[in-house]
Design a protein around this nucleic acid. Structure first.
Lengths: 227, 227
DNA sequence: CCAAAAGTGTTAGTGATACACCCATGT
DNA sequence: ACATGGGTGTATCACTAACACTTTTGG
């Protein structure tokens, strides 16, 4: 414990909160009102309290920004370059959060914060090293979407197969063949059909499905002996 | 910055240093000489200095324990439960390191530390939350070995195909078919043959190979649209 | 009846898996 | 000559990828 008292590093959490809006992947950002990086956008986050577990700090920040508690939250990595915050040394632990925008609406911008969704296609310049953090989080999301059932976290309880396909397409950044997609989803055996349909627009209504497991579930242990 | 001064959380780095010994995956551990967890084993690590980048702190600790600087080092996650260290709140950033035991020998146990290799098949009880950390690091390693050329970091410059296969087998925890393994390695086109052979024991000598890219290289961008 | 999205099968090609014998060497 | 690990090819099966038309609804 000898060196303990000499250290002056602060611990924060930052959140990469993703959602799907109109079939596009979006990220929640806050516009900074003060220096440093005044006018730029940043990830929501804040300092960890002394007795507070990291994931509780993340949930607290998430709730402050979105009014939501019950979400998928995954710890990613930590970022701690000495100069990443010009005000002092801060190491931040990053959490990935996925929410269904329709279920959990943003509380009307509390306080002075102005949280808003931004399409991942064209993110504005970000403060600090947040661009790197987002890029890393996005890579993780791409992996998770392919190996787990986390797509369920981005959709309402009932959804059409086209809705689901758009989740995959927006995260993988490519168009998928409709027939092949449906075959693969069927083979995974993770959905159960409902008797409801979604009628919107002048076309044939879509059958709605729900996930068998609402909660996180790994779909494959083995990736393939190589990939 | 208002809450900055109130925080009392210390930042450390811990290292999961893997190597292959006699075809088995091993992890470097230190036996703790003092409480807490006296007599148990722990990951090598230490506190981050005020102006020190995290990866430099990791390299410093690595060098102290192994006498090695030039190794593959990858930042993993952070662990910061309030009670993980009974002496006070410490958040640790974990690094994965891979070394070739033959190239980089351990310096004869410096100071009072007693670092030693332990087979991952039968690790002793670990201090703190280090068991969880090792499990997470191992999962990461399993993924990396299948998607990148990091096997090169665990082998000497020249090695036989059987040596390479043992790296994969020990990390994947399964036996692989020799012919299929060689076909796949050939299709990846990451090795170049040397004219040397390894003669050891009373049998046909093995041809030695080396990696085309010594350094880290991703082998596949796309995992597969699912996995 | 037109527009718009939903829904549905087959084929060809590629890659994964399973499997057994001969080779070169030291003792 | 024998014991030991090195080295090689083929056949089957499973999965991926490419591809186009009919259905159902609202306007």
């Amino acid at each position: 414990m000898r060196d303990f008292q000499k250290q002056h590093i602060l611990v924060a959490v930052d959140l990469c909160i993703f959602t799907i809006i109109k079939g596009e992947l979006n990220l929640l950002l806050i516009e900074r009102k003060y220096d440093p990086f005044k006018g730029k956008y940043a990830l929501p986050g804040g300092f960890v309290k002394n007795e507070e577990p990291l994931h509780i700090a993340a949930l607290r920040e998430l709730h402050e920004e979105t009014g939501v508690y019950d979400v998928y939250l995954k710890k990613l990595s930590a970022y701690g370059e000495p100069k990443r915050d010009p005000r002092g040394r801060v190491i931040t632990v990053v959490y990935l959060a996925l929410i269904d925008k329709d279920r959990y609406k943003l509380t009307a911008t509390t306080d002075a914060t102005s949280a808003a969704w931004h399409s991942c296609q064209k993110l504005p310049p970000l403060a600090f090293d947040h661009r790197m953090i987002v890029d890393d989080a996005f890579k993780d999301l791409r992996y998770e979407i392919q190996t787990t059932n986390i797509a369920s976290q981005l959709l309402p309880e009932r959804f059409s197969l086209t809705d689901l396909q758009k989740v995959y397409e927006s995260i993988l950044g490519m168009n998928l063949d409709k027939r092949n997609f449906r075959k693969r989803i069927a083979s995974l055996d993770i959905l159960k059909p409902t008797k409801e349909t979604k009628m919107e627009g002048a076309h044939r209504p879509a059958q709605l499905f729900r996930f068998k497991d609402e909660k996180y579930k790994a779909l494959k242990e083995k990736i393939h002996v190589f990939v």
